[in-house]
Structures are given as C-alpha cells and as structure tokens.
Design a protein around this nucleic acid. Structure first.
Length: 422
RNA sequence: GGAGAGAUGGCCGAGUAGGUCGAAGGCGCUCGCCUGCUAAGCGAGUAUACUGGGAAACCGGUAUCGAGGGUUCGAAUCCCUCUCUCUCCGCCA
C-alpha cells in the first residue's frame, strides 16, 4: 500500500509514476474519498469529545435524577454518532479497498517501458550452448528417460500437473537440498519451512489479495489459500511486528511447493514443466533497513544467480521495465536461463524490492533508535530458484546425443554419486 | 470431535455489584544523580494508529484491554458471535 499522506501531498507525481506501468489512472477518486473520510471523522470525533465530557459530568453528579436532561441529550448525540460512524465506515472501507488495489510506485531505477520488450539486459553469464546435435525439448528428454510422466500427472489431477519418477524425482529433491544448503551455508539465510496454506490477511499483506484472487487456489471453510509462492508465508512471518534494528537484515530461505491457477494463460506453455499449477521453489526473503534495500537487492540477485553459475547454466539478468514489474514491486531483476531445447531464454528467478509497500500492508516496522517512532522496513524476495524450471534447464543443457543427461558436478553428491541419467 | 480454562501495554501481572482506567504494581528500557569501575540505590520518563493546529519542538481530539457486534449518557468490566492459546478425553500422520 502507498503512503496516503504522500499521495495526498504529491498526487500528480504519484499518478505520473504509476502511469509508467501502463494502466489506467490509478489514483482517480482518491482525493474525493480521502476528503470525505476526514470530514466525517472530524465531525464524529468532535461529537464524541462532547459526549465524553458529558459522561464525565454525569459520573460526578451523585443524584442521577439531576442528570436526566444531560442523559437524554446524550442519548440523542449517541444516536447521531452511530449514524455518522456507519457512514464513516462505508467510506473508510471504500478508501481502504481503493488503496489496496493501487500498485506500488516503480522505483526511479526501474526503466520506463510498456511491455517485456522494453526490459533491459543488465548482464549475461556463460555462453548459450550450441549442441553438436539437434537439441530436444525437456519434455521429450524426460519422457524418453522415464523420469517425467505428464500423462499420469494429468490422470491424477489434470493438465499442468506432472508425476516425477526415479532419477527425475531424485533430481528435483537434490536441487532443493543443493539450493537450500548454498543459501544457508554460504549466503547467510536462515532456513524456514512455513505453512503452505495461509489466511486472507497474509495474502493481503504481500499483495495477492484483494486484486488477484483469480490466480489463487482457494479453500472454503475454513477460508484458506494455497500459497502461490513462499514469499507470502515468509514475508508474513513478521506481520504486525516491530523488529529490532540490530536484527536487520533478516534473511530467510524456504522451500515450498507453489500453487497457481494460471488463469489467463490457457494456450501458453502447455507442454512440459514450464508452467505448472504446482511447482517447487526455493525462495529468498529479506527484511531490510530502508537505506539498505537497494544494495540488498543486488546481493539477493547475485545469490540466486550463484545457483545457476554453480550448475554451469548460462543465464542473463534482465531489469524489468515499469510496464512489466509486478503489482507490489518497485524494482525487479529477472534471471533468465538458456534453454537449448527451445532456443530461448526463460525466466527462472524474479528478484524484487518492494520498498515499504508490503511492509505498510503487513505492518512490519523497526525503530531507528529507542526513542523514535516505528518506521516501515523494506521487504525483498527472489526465487533462488524455481526448481522445476531448473530441472528443465539441466535436462536441456546437459542432454547428450545418445539421449542421456549428465548430472552437473555439484549435484552428484546429492544424487548418490550418479553421474548420468540414462 | 467432546469437556473445561484463558486472551490486558516490550514482558510479567492487577483490575468484573459498569463511571475521572490508556489502564495499579513489577521487570525491562531511556535520561539524570550518586559512585574508583561494575553492581546496588535515588529521581524522571517510557504504547500505537488516525486526526486538528504548528515551520518545528510540541499541543489538542478520537480510537485501541484477542476480533466483530449489542446494551448504556458512559464498558477492559454486562450480553451475543467468531478467532486463537492451554488442559483433559477420544481419534489420527
């Protein structure tokens, strides 16, 4: 959520920055709602002040029959307050809902652009492998090796669900362990294992709700939501808390499955593991001092990229433009891995800083020093990495002409020494 | 699933025949005094949000005692609903 005081005082500037996202006029209607709310609030509160004073008087009067006039008068005042508060609540709710659907301001460093075509290549690592034979896409490799069973996955659940088998299942597990070990042992993250179902407040805290309910799998009775990313439960760990400044930055790494409806992407990536309703991801989440968030985003991105480097998978770093960053993000780097089977780069990690946007929604604060007011922390997160897509990248990059797949060196200890899937 | 207990400020913990209670007391913390250092001791201060005024320091108002609703001139205190925690029984990975 944006800072309402800032919006009130900088409406034009805020609107101008939001427009670089390419949407409608996001803040139209704010002024009206805000002023209406504050007018109602003023009136209601002055009546309450009057009532409180009168009640105190009544309390002092020993003989209550002497207070009858006052009591009758206040009875009316109370009714007026009640009516006024009902109206206030309507306006307040409307304003609240309004603010919850306004996206974050793009950071100054976010390139302005309309679509993903305007994203900027920041750097590249490794040479896109040119195989000496005709490269196959991962679904063909996986099926012929018997490690990915798309048909059975569809039978069990439906489209976009996959059954992993044997070395395939083991490879997925190896990747999860490898990534978590790297981030916890080398990069200073604490491993956490959160619930995979969260409540509504958590979804609002990180920005999935109220606007993007269509993207979520929902449970009724009780009302729970399957997490679309570990970002949700892990960021909400500190919802409503005031953190100690000396504890910042707080860095967590979590592996969770992620569940996404993928509404609106019906024709896209129908084959293979690229776009699944359920996939594994290792997520990195940071809570930082506002002055450190820019630097921490660079570190977080480098931490995620390190996984690709150790796996020797070529990738490039993209700075997403204003038209392509997510709802809650101020600035985002995508890591895109080279997939020879499809001759293209595909997103395998998305690393973002949210500034104080999520922290304000979720009420996550710290104190600059003992006596100062609590301020909002900055939150960041990034995939480190999407596990299914990493497995895809390995199958496609390490495929051999005979149809087998070599296991990257660093994963072999996690694969019981296995060097090749054949 | 059945029976019971409970949710108060950073923490602990008073407060229920409704009324100067944002809330005693203690701990912790901050500042000052004292002191060879530390400790102890003494004094003062120490919630959050919204809102009005002010350049600011700051001053005023409103709300908040798990959440929401009700009764009342007035509720931490009474009534209803919900959530969570704990104990016992049953069941279960």
């Amino acid at each position: 959520m944006l800072d309402m005081k800032f919006i009130r005082e900088n409406l034009e500037e805020a609107e101008r920055r939001l427009r670089t996202r390419g949407g409608e006029a996001y803040l139209e209607g704010f002024r009206h709602l805000d002023e209406k709310r504050r007018a109602l609030l003023r009136d209601s509160e002055s009546l309450k002040a009057m009532r409180n004073a009168a009640s105190e008087e009544i309390a002092r009067i020993k003989d209550k029959s002497q207070a009858q006039d006052k009591i009758l008068e206040m009875r009316e005042v109370s009714q007026k307050i009640k009516a006024m508060d009902e109206e206030l609540k309507l306006v307040d709710d409307e304003l609240q809902m309004f603010m919850l659907t306004v996206p974050n301001l793009p950071a100054a460093a976010t390139p302005v652009g309309a679509s993903e075509d305007d994203n900027v290549i920041v750097r590249s690592w490794g040479d896109p492998r040119q195989l000496s034979f005709s490269a196959k896409p991962h679904w063909e490799i996986g099926e012929s090796l018997g490690i990915l069973d798309f048909e059975r996955g569809a039978k069990l659940t439906g489209a976009r669900f996959t059954l992993y088998r044997g070395a395939g299942a083991r490879l997925e597990r190896a990747l999860i362990s490898f990534m978590l070990d790297l981030h916890t042992e080398q990069h200073g993250y604490q491993e956490v294992l959160p619930p995979f179902l969260v409540n509504r407040e958590s979804m609002i805290g990180t920005g999935q709700l109220p606007k993007f309910a269509d993207d979520l799998f929902t449970l009724r009775d009780p009302e729970f939501y399957l997490i679309p990313t570990a970002e949700v439960p892990v960021t909400n760990i500190h919802r409503g808390e005031i953190l100690r400044k000396s504890d910042l930055p707080i860095c967590y790494a979590a592996h969770t499955p992620c569940f996404r409806r993928e509404a609106g992407s019906y024709g896209k990536d129908t084959r293979g593991l690229i776009r699944q309703h359920q996939f594994n991801k290792v997520e990195l989440v940071k809570f930082t001092h506002p002055s450190e968030s820019d630097a921490e985003l660079e570190k977080l991105t480098a931490n995620a990229a390190k996984v690709l480097e150790l796996l020797e998978l070529p990738y490039r770093v993209m700075a997403l433009c204003s038209g392509d960053i997510g709802f809650s993000a101020a600035k985002t780097y995508d890591l895109e891995v080279w997939l020879p089977g499809q001759s293209c780069y595909r997103e395998i990690s998305s690393c973002s800083t949210f500034g104080d946007f999520q922290a304000r929604r979720a009420g996550i604060r710290f104190r600059e020093d003992e006596k100062s007011k609590p301020e909002f922390v900055h939150t960041l997160n990034g995939s480190g990495l999407a596990v299914g897509r990493t497995l895809v990248a390995i199958l496609e990059n390490y495929q051999q002409e005979d149809g087998s797949v070599l296991i990257p060196e660093v994963l072999r200890p996690y694969m019981g020494g296995l060097e090749r899937i054949a």
